[in-house]
């Protein structure tokens, strides 16, 4: 079947088998390999991308279902050489370790912030519940998303994990109460 979709700003028209999954079409058909495949069973969320602005797990969507849509992958999030605030926050707050879950985490976070620009920590955790980090780096992922939210609202980023952290105070150590 013939499918046409705009991926990260570029229109592609291709012949696909109906059984081709969107993730395979992007990676194998179009050579856009920024979207990794993790669990293969729609649990882990590493293949998350945006279809018409909404997060989906691309291992559970057929390419033919995405005919006529506009798709954003991690490769299309930056504006030229300027990273998206969520990408920047993940770097500043060490929101990634091995990096495998990162494209999906970032796109799930972008989706969350598009619906809820000022989430609580709890809302961030619920918003990312479909994305697993096997390094278990959730603390910094949540910090990254909260910082990106603050920056995108115009309140500036939250202090980074390393460079901006205040020097640890030892004055109260061992103090009696």
């Amino acid at each position: 079947m013939r499918v046409r979709m705009k991926v990260d700003g570029v229109v592609y028209e291709d012949e696909v088998e109906p059984r081709t999954l969107l993730t395979h079409h992007l990676r194998d058909g179009l050579g856009r390999v920024g979207t990794p495949i993790g669990c293969d069973t729609s649990n882990c969320g590493s293949c998350t991308l945006l279809v018409d602005g909404e997060s989906v797990k691309s291992c559970s969507v057929l390419a033919v279902q995405a005919d006529g849509t506009e798709i954003t992958t991690i490769q299309g999030l930056a504006e030229g050489s300027t990273w998206h605030p969520v990408q920047k926050a993940f770097q500043e707050h060490h929101g990634l370790q091995c990096g495998y879950c990162t494209p999906g985490m970032i796109l799930a976070a972008v989706d969350l912030l598009s619906h809820n620009p000022d989430p609580t920590e709890d809302e961030v955790r619920h918003g990312l519940e479909g994305n697993l980090c096997r390094c278990t780096g959730y603390q910094n992922i949540v910090k990254s998303v909260l910082s990106a939210a603050s920056e995108m609202r115009g309140d500036g980023p939250l202090p980074g994990s390393f460079q901006d952290a205040p020097a640890e105070s030892h004055e109260t150590a061992g103090a009696s109460s």
């Binding site: 729609s42 969320g45 998350t48 279809v51 909404e54 997060s55 989906v56 797990k57 559970s60 969507v61 799930a108 989706d111 969350l112 918003g127 519940e129 479909g130 994305n131």
Partner: peptide
């Protein structure tokens, strides 16, 4: 039900 990405589909 499931998670936000699944609920979108």
């Amino acid at each position: 039900v499931a998670d936000p990405a699944v609920r979108h589909r």
